[in-house]
Design a protein around this nucleic acid. Structure first.
Lengths: 343, 343
DNA sequence: TTTCAATATGCAATCGATTGCAGAAAAATA
DNA sequence: TATTTTTCTGCAATCGATTGCATATTGAAA
């Protein structure tokens, strides 16, 4: 790779015996330029294969038309769908996405956010990592005057734009559904309680039990069971209890639910007959397993679109006085075979 | 959002009664700076919450420490894993990734590439979209002096660094495996033949048949069946033939294989007894289906790492004379239940 | 013909960080 | 003490695009 000299507006200017100002105006279609001159510039630019240096332009304009996205995992269905949703809306408007992965690590999340700040992105979109409990880095984003939008896993205490699911409601519905199907001892696989979404899901679980007059049994609540492996391990333990559950609500993720299902199949426990299983987030595979897994659709693509729309709305309005908006996307329970005892 | 004035090195300089040069040297640890001064600068920078403006820095340095990645779909397992692999290696070295999605559209791919060129990324990594057959935009990348690395779906005629799978070999092995399992009429779901990977896979299929003395039946070869839906449709057609196949090699993707399996299950065709199914690329779900699907692991994360390593190697060597390297990652056949007739 | 507005282009500063060169100060050597 | 070397800091240019202001030209209206 010879680091070739790139063509700049000065090269075009020189060739046409005009100044860079004129070339710039012609290219950006800004201000007065003689039509003949403009045509010449455009033509020469094409001939020389000129590419605008976005760095220089952005530096001058103080605006990058770039949105930074920080998610725990790029390759998790929910997140990649949200990203796809964002991309869908921002692409048309000529915005770019820089995508970072926090790997569920607080330290890496901080680094990602700082990089994005340094890159002068116009907006940072984030779903915080599991082991985050300090949000100085996000406060920082705000202090730097960068638009901050949180989605799904949000730090509630920060006053920012947010796009969230009604997790408590969805969780309530899921557990109510299980109860209506005749399940009586419903276990909960819960996520890290420093994340509000998992607190909300637990709340939904508890209030559904209460509303239907079922007692809460702490032995049926398993902490931090949110991977396939942890879901499997939890299931082994739960099914070994003297008074085993007849349903497991994997409020953490479908991956956990998959772990549950696999152990159930292995132990020849009939699903949904002896054990009901409900997951969360409608990963693709939930439809394919035998039996298919009841889960909750979060409308991930819509979340992404909502994020993008929030950003553009805010751009237009510029109103600082109102308190920041929160968009609530209503999730939907998808009842599938893994919980359908009654037809 | 009040677009606040950000702190620059000039602000720090002013506060300490030195020049920006000194501040810059202190912050980047470059050249001579008195130790006391350096400490002061560092401290003041922290106090004022200074963030380096990467745009300005990059403009000056002519290097962005950013790698652009263009893939057809972010949310396809194979690609997100490759990205994860790249990220893994580049993150340590302080490189950023800008990720773009071509949505399998040639036009969008061109736009993505141009944006990345404008952004002055140091390297562009790409797996071309399905409907690409013209590679001027890639030639352009090279002409602009930007390192270009192709992976998986590559334009063979372009002399660039490449990381590929031995598709022909893998395909050959898969079909040989089917033959050894006693399947005699093996259908092929083939991908768009403008992409070399699909041509190679077809070649592997053909040579395996030939080598084992099986005749090629054109009726068993279905064009462009590479989504779940198309795979399903193809299967319906194939199974309706007077002389139906006893195995289907979905060389396009596991999604197509899934479509095949679903139709087989629906029609109560026994898999692997009456019909063998083999997919391609080891998507997560292939392990979960009933029966699990035989497929080919492409070692996607390794591909990503290889890409990153190629880039860094090239950075070091700067040797232009050699012809560009191609790294061949050997894929591996994973035989699972969907093809195991004999134990 | 005079006057004013519209159009076209250039000049020079700006965005923020970096760096070669030069001069000054400090330290090391003769 | 004189001389050389090393360290420290400032000046000013640079990266490439944009834009306010000034000047020049053209055309239209008075």
């Amino acid at each position: 790779m010879t680091p070739k000299k790139r063509i700049t507006i000065y090269d075009i200017a020189q060739k046409l015996n005009v100044t860079a100002s004129t070339v710039s105006r012609a290219l950006s279609n800004n201000g007065y330029v003689n039509d003949a001159t403009r045509q010449l510039v455009l033509q020469t630019a094409a001939e020389l294969n000129y590419k605008r240096n976005t760095l220089a332009s952005n530096l001058r304009m103080g605006q990058t038309k770039t949105i930074g996205v920080v998610v725990p995992r790029i390759n998790q269905n929910f997140f990649s769908n949200v990203i796809a949703g964002i991309e869908d809306m921002t692409y048309e408007k000529g915005y770019n996405l820089i995508i970072c992965q926090s790997d569920e690590q607080h330290e890496k999340e901080i680094k990602c956010v700082n990089t994005l700040i340094n890159q002068h992105v116009d907006c940072i979109v984030i779903s915080v990592s599991a082991d985050s409990d300090n949000y100085d880095h996000l406060q920082n984003v705000i202090d730097q005057g960068i638009q901050l939008i949180q989605f799904d896993r949000v730090a509630e205490e920060l006053e920012t734009l947010k796009v969230i699911n009604d997790n408590e409601q969805a969780s309530f519905e899921a557990v109510s559904h299980l109860i209506k199907q005749g399940y009586k001892r419903i276990a909960l696989l819960e996520g890290p309680q420093n994340l509000s979404i998992f607190r909300q899901r637990k709340r939904g679980y508890l209030s559904a039990l209460e509303q239907h007059g079922l007692a809460v049994d702490d032995k049926l609540i398993v902490e931090k069971a949110w991977t396939r492996e942890l879901g499997a391990a939890a299931t082994r333990k739960l099914l070994g209890l003297p008074n085993a559950p007849d349903a497991i609500f994997a409020s953490t993720s479908d991956f956990a639910a998959l772990g549950v299902l696999e152990v159930a199949n292995e132990l020849k426990v009939d699903v949904p007959g002896q054990l009901g299983i409900c997951g969360y987030s409608n990963e693709d595979f939930t439809e394919i397993t035998t039996p298919s897994i009841t889960t909750i659709d979060q409308f991930s693509i819509e979340i992404g679109k909502a994020v993008a729309n929030l950003f553009f709305d805010e751009l237009k309005s510029k109103s600082t006085d109102e308190s920041p908006k929160t968009i609530n996307i209503r999730p939907e329970l998808l009842s599938r075979s893994s919980t359908l005892r009654k037809k």
